[in-house]
Simulated scan of single mutants.
Amino acid sequence: MRIDAHLQIGVGRYYRVDPGHMIEQMDRCGIDQALVSPVDREMAVYNREGNDRVLALSKQFPGRFLAYATANPWYEGAAVAELERALGEGAAAVKLHPPLQGFMILESLVYPLIEVAARHRAPIYVHTGTPVYALPLQLAELALTYPEVSFIMGKNGKTDFTMDALPALEKASNLYGDTAHDFPERGMARLSKKIGPERLIFSSNHPVSRIELEVDKVRELAVNDDDKAAVMGGNMQRLLAARFH
């Protein structure tokens, strides 16, 4: 199965993505399933509305879309309750966006949400690349604090801290790299060689990038077909299997 581990559907501040059009693009690119994130304002403020919207998409298009659940840690107990609710209603994974949600990765403020994800065996996608809130080595420290949780390093620190991606991935074995916005002959190939293709996760980060472009880049990755299949979906499928076991 080919899985896009991160895209957005809906009306954000700078984009508008229709679910039917998204499925057409997925079909053209051979993508079977995609994890859908709430949009910007839903990440920051309207957590319940965003979670309900992407959960509804997962039910409207069963097997094609899976929902990310989010909660802003500044809502404290209400955030914990909301994340519990959304995961309990079938969200597949958790997404955190420190710059949008106004916290730094290593702040203890976020720990209760990580503990919710741990109880549900849900992988956590964390945006990285925005100083000072969200840097790869900060995420590595969080991953070491919670070794039972699988973390996806969203965008591998791009654009400002890509150089920290490899040291962070080498530091924490429960941290997974993201292929979005990377180059096959440089970033992806280097990461694959150092940490193994079993720890690379394909995502398009649509609509910031295009699915066609991101799929083509993985197609050019200099690994065997089994390893490409792992990057394109097998690795994410394994993380999701732990969630729904």
Rank of each mutant, 00 (worst) to 15 (best):
Asn72Trp: 12
Leu7Trp: 00
Gln33Ala: 03
Leu139Gln: 11
His206Gly: 00
Ala44Ile: 14
Tyr15Trp: 03
Ser192Gly: 13
Asp18Tyr: 02
Phe161Tyr: 14
Glu148Trp: 01
Ala34Trp: 02
Tyr133Cys: 08
Ile9Ala: 01
Gly102Met: 03
Ser37Glu: 01
Tyr111Lys: 00
Val94Cys: 10
Trp74Asp: 07
Pro207Glu: 04
Val132Ala: 07
Ile152Tyr: 06
Ile195Arg: 02
Leu35Asp: 01
Leu137Asp: 09
Ala143Glu: 12
Met43Gln: 15
Met232Gly: 06
Ser150Glu: 10
Tyr146Thr: 06
Ala122Phe: 10
Ala172Phe: 12
Asp27Asn: 11
Pro167Ser: 08
Asp160Ile: 06
Trp74Phe: 08
Leu57Ala: 00
Gly129His: 09
Ser108Lys: 08
Leu113Phe: 05
Ser209Gly: 11
Met188His: 05
Gly187Asp: 11
Lys193Ser: 09
Phe61His: 15
Leu83Asn: 12
Tyr46Asp: 14
Ala165Pro: 10
Glu82Pro: 12
Leu137His: 09
Glu76Asn: 07
Gly12Gln: 01
Glu76Ser: 10
Glu198Leu: 00
Thr179Met: 07
Glu141His: 14
Gln25Gly: 06
Asp4Met: 04
Arg48Met: 10
Asp178His: 01
Asp226Tyr: 01
Leu144Cys: 12
Val132Thr: 13
Met26Ser: 01
Gly187Ala: 11
Leu213Gly: 10
Glu84His: 13
Thr179Val: 12
Val149Lys: 03
Arg199Asp: 10
Val231Gln: 04
Arg186Asn: 01
Ala86Ile: 11
Val17Glu: 06
Pro73Leu: 02
Arg186Cys: 00
Glu107Ser: 05
Glu89Ser: 13
Met22Glu: 09
Glu42Asp: 14
Glu212Tyr: 04
Glu212Trp: 01
Val94Trp: 06
Gly187Arg: 11
Leu109Pro: 05
